[in-house]
């Protein structure tokens, strides 16, 4: 359900100019980021792409670690681990006196975790290219046993193959990256094709990044999928994101980000916000 888009966005946000893209980490170098994401929505994109009210509001919050580490100059290990994930449903109170309110609810757990290996295909060219194989581990709670369908995971093990290409305009201090990916999903979920691009600047200590990411469902899943929520399957979106990074020192920085969806299906229709602190080795 909403988890999928949120995690997708968080994962995209987690990487920045100092990580991600077509560049693998040099051997022994790394990038580590502790983030907090926030989403609360009273609207939703329905299956036809129309925005409709959602009453009560639903929220998703994740405290996560994103890490990249260079095992060799070409081989980088990647981890996205939301070690505390929280899904909430707001309490609903009525304006009319005496009408009983509907209680809110929350689900706290470990979240679905991604592990990946990135391999640099072209590393010393004007355009660098890398390939990534990513495994989505269903470590979160898929909500199958709670009546509110609150979820911190989608319950399926997915495998995604992704190719990134990047170009630095050095000595000018900006870069561009683009990627394409195929996400093979299990347990009756539709497979996905993903595309995205980003452009980043380095303005002394300030690094703004603009991103666009898209997810397209192949709608080849099992329509009878019932346990993991309608919003977990056949998600589609076009999502721009803005990330602002500030270097506190040569190794430590802070970042803030916002991602939203311009058009979408089956996802919450509100921006996702993130803040974080990162460390470069």
């Amino acid at each position: 359900m909403k988890k999928s888009i949120i995690v997708s966005l968080i994962f995209l946000i987690a990487a920045n100019a100092l990580a991600g893209g077509g560049w693998p980490q040099p051997k022994g170098k790394g990038y580590f980021k502790l983030s907090q994401s926030y989403l609360l929505s009273s609207k939703i994109f329905d299956g036809n792409g129309d925005v409709t009210d959602l009453v009560p509001s639903y929220g998703y919050f994740a405290t996560s670690l994103y890490a990249e580490y260079g095992f060799t100059d070409r081989l980088t290990g990647i981890l996205y681990m939301p070690f505390f994930a929280r899904a909430t449903k707001n309490e609903l109170q009525y304006n009319q006196p005496g009408v009983p309110s509907e209680p809110g609810a929350a689900l706290n757990s470990f979240g679905d975790t991604d592990i990946a290996i990135k391999y640099g295909l072209l590393t010393n060219k004007p355009i660098v290219v890398s390939a990534t194989i990513l495994f989505g581990l269903p470590l979160g709670d898929n909500g199958a046993t709670n009546a509110n369908a609150l979820q911190t995971g989608d319950g399926e093990f997915n495998q995604m193959l992704r190719v990134d290409a990047s170009h630095s305009f050095y000595p000018k201090k900006f870069y561009v990256s683009a990627y394409g990916a195929f996400n093979n999903r299990t347990k009756g979920f539709s497979d996905e094709v993903r595309f995205g691009a980003e452009i980043g600047w380095t303005l002394k200590k300030f690094i703004p990044i603009l991103k666009i990411s898209t997810v397209h469902s192949l709608f080849n899943g099992d329509v009878g999928v019932v346990q993991n929520g309608v919003f977990s399957n056949n998600i589609e979106f076009i999502s721009p994101a803005l990330e602002l990074n500030y270097q506190l020192t040569d190794k430590v920085g802070i970042s803030a980000s916002m991602a939203t969806a311009l058009a979408a299906r089956n996802i919450l229709a509100s921006p996702n916000f993130g803040i974080g602190v990162y460390l470069k080795l």
Partner: peptide
């Protein structure tokens, strides 16, 4: 701040 962000909020509407 983190606690406030993730509290269960309250929505109001007409019955």
């Amino acid at each position: 701040l983190l606690g406030c962000f993730s509290c269960i909020g309250v929505d109001r509407k007409d019955a």
